[in-house]
Amino acid sequence: MSRGPGSPATTGRSVLFALPAVLPVLAVLGVSLTAAVLQSLGLMPFIGPPDLSFEAWTGNTGELFRATGLSLYIAATATVFSVCIGFLIAAYVLAMPRMGRIVAALSAATIPIPHVIGAGAIGLLLSDSGFLERLLGMPDAFPVLVGGPWWIAAITEYAWKESAFVALVVLGSIARSVGELCDAAATLGATATQRILRVVLPLAMPSLAVSAVIVFVYTLGSYEAVWLLGPTSPEPLPVRAVRLFGSVDLAARPQAMATALVSVAVGAAAILAGILVLRRVRGFR
């Protein structure tokens, strides 16, 4: 009987070793998703007998679609900014070893700051009576960044925090090999810009893709920053879900669950798309 890598015995042992980590995740996810689906369909009501109903899904589809579109906009924009800024930070750290160390340390220090603190700080900085407005001295002309229609303050908060995360993931994945490859590229005639675009960027693509998926899914489901820094209406999915879940109207619970499940579905779709892209990126290598 074969005992090499990939043999049934080895695979079975690998599965056994993974079970302690995987089982709690599956149990929590399974229970919570099942409960959410049942509650959204009226089969697990807070009070009263179960009664199958699609009202939570079909009753206010317009608002649900608007919330989904808004969440996608915030998550996609924040992800694009985070990935671009994060890659630039990583490239800077690699290109400038001394100053880069300081930038890397600042990035690392950014990550443990909770989003709710970060959102509060961004609010104090960018609100229409905030630090920046007072510094620039333009009370009338200062744009509506907090609570404005483009969710700029919330996206800024995400981009600030998540770009540091992206930079550290990229640095961790390529820092060892990229220096020598850039030296080789330089002796082959590549300028500094060409080295970044033709060597560093392709090498960073797998880690950028992974971190982009993580940032997208996180910002899609994150509540604090959009609740603190966004307008009251329209609402992104997590804000709508939390508001409906905490409503005094217990009949709103199924809608809260339907909203949360849409968020989960969009996140799962993003993860699947990310895996496909990642496979393709790795296929290049």
Binding site: E180, L181, D183, A184, A185, A186, T187, L188, G189, A190, T191, V199, P202, L203, M205, F284, R285
Partner: peptide, 19 residues
């Protein structure tokens, strides 16, 4: 700068671009 010197260097490791 290195890219303008017109010299090519083959390193101890091949350092082929993996992508």
């Amino acid at each position: 700068p290195s890219e303008e010197r017109g010299l090519a260097l083959v390193f101890q490791k091949p350092l082929l671009f993996p992508h």
